[in-house]
Amino acid sequence: MKPAAFDYIRARELPEALEALARHGADARVIAGGQSLLPMLNMRLARPAVLIDIMGIAGLDRVERDGDLIVVPAVVRQAALMKRPGLSGEQPLLAAALPWLGHYQTRARGTVCGSAAHADPSAEIPLCLVALDGEVRLRSRRRWRSVRAADFFGGMMVTDKADDELIEAVAFPAAMTGTGYAFREVARRHGDFAIVGCAAVVTRDAIHLAVAGVADKPQRRSFPPLKGSALTDALNGFAWDLEARDDFHATARLRRDLVRSLGLSTIGEAQRCLA
């Protein structure tokens, strides 16, 4: 199939893109990498009247540090973040997760913020944002605001972004001393969306585990420093609370089993990194 007809605006500056969003609102869609949006256009699952291309806007293509945050602006490609020098020390969870994100060809075009905007419940970028308690920075012609990742994702492909807002950047907390990080995923093929993905952030006082691919958005649960059967029981409770469903890719039972086993091994890896 081919997309329905639309008008095309190639924004050269951020104010131009924001003005177009303010003018067209729900009739407009923003495109940068297009790896999620273009298939939806071709299948006519999305039928915007106006497509606003932001890839040519200067200043939105460089990863920056803002204190303890790694700020990734709107047109930074996934491959560029993956190749960032020193990323494995700067934020080990991101470094571990990015190779699982799609394939070489899609990472070369797809943007980090585009993955957040698409809000697929199995995707790695939303999972990392929730696991690390990151933030999404939104800008419109009328305001700027920052939203915690846990509050930004509302469900399957549903976010807190208003029709006239652009995701200007996402921000991931950098690694902290005395904290262990780990990421593990099970998919049909490496690079496919996860059947279950787990991201663990562990300190000596707490265990934080985020899970993707089970509920309609990434979910994060915090535990005290449990061990043995106490941790197993806590993960079992988490697995049932996620209310997994059967679908084409996996049964609900398999997903619950993966939350228990993959969650335990991911936490164990993070604890070893902590040690």
Rank of each mutant, 00 (worst) to 15 (best):
M1V: 14
A4N: 06
A4H: 07
R12S: 08
P15N: 08
A17C: 00
L18V: 00
L18F: 06
L21Q: 08
L21F: 05
R23Y: 06
A28Q: 04
A32P: 06
G33D: 09
G34L: 12
P39Y: 04
P39S: 05
N42D: 11
L45V: 14
A46W: 12
V50A: 01
I52H: 02
I52K: 01
D53H: 13
I54K: 04
A58P: 09
A58Q: 11
L60P: 07
L60W: 09
D61H: 07
R62S: 14
E64I: 12
E64R: 15
I70V: 15
V71L: 12
A74H: 04
A74F: 02
V75P: 06
A79G: 08
A80R: 12
L81C: 08
P92Y: 06
P92N: 06
L94K: 15
A95N: 13
A96K: 11
A96D: 14
L98R: 05
P99G: 03
G102C: 12
H103G: 09
Q105S: 15
T106D: 09
S115M: 10
A117E: 11
D120W: 01
A123N: 14
E124S: 15
I125Q: 03
A131F: 09
R137F: 05
R141C: 07
V147L: 02
V147Y: 01
F153C: 03
G154D: 01
M157E: 15
M157L: 15
D160I: 00
K161C: 13
A162Q: 12
D163W: 09
A169T: 03
A169W: 02
A169D: 04
V170M: 04
G178V: 02
G178P: 05
G180A: 06
F183T: 10
V186E: 00
A187I: 09
R188G: 10
G191K: 14
I195K: 09
G197C: 03
C198Q: 04
A199H: 03
V202E: 00
D205G: 07
I207Y: 00
K217A: 01
R220A: 13
R221L: 03
L226V: 02
G228L: 00
A234K: 00
G237H: 14
F238V: 00
W240N: 13
E243S: 10
A244V: 07
D246T: 08
F248V: 09
H249A: 13
A252H: 14
L254Q: 04
R256T: 10
R256C: 11
R256E: 13
V259W: 14
L264A: 15
G268Q: 12
C273K: 13
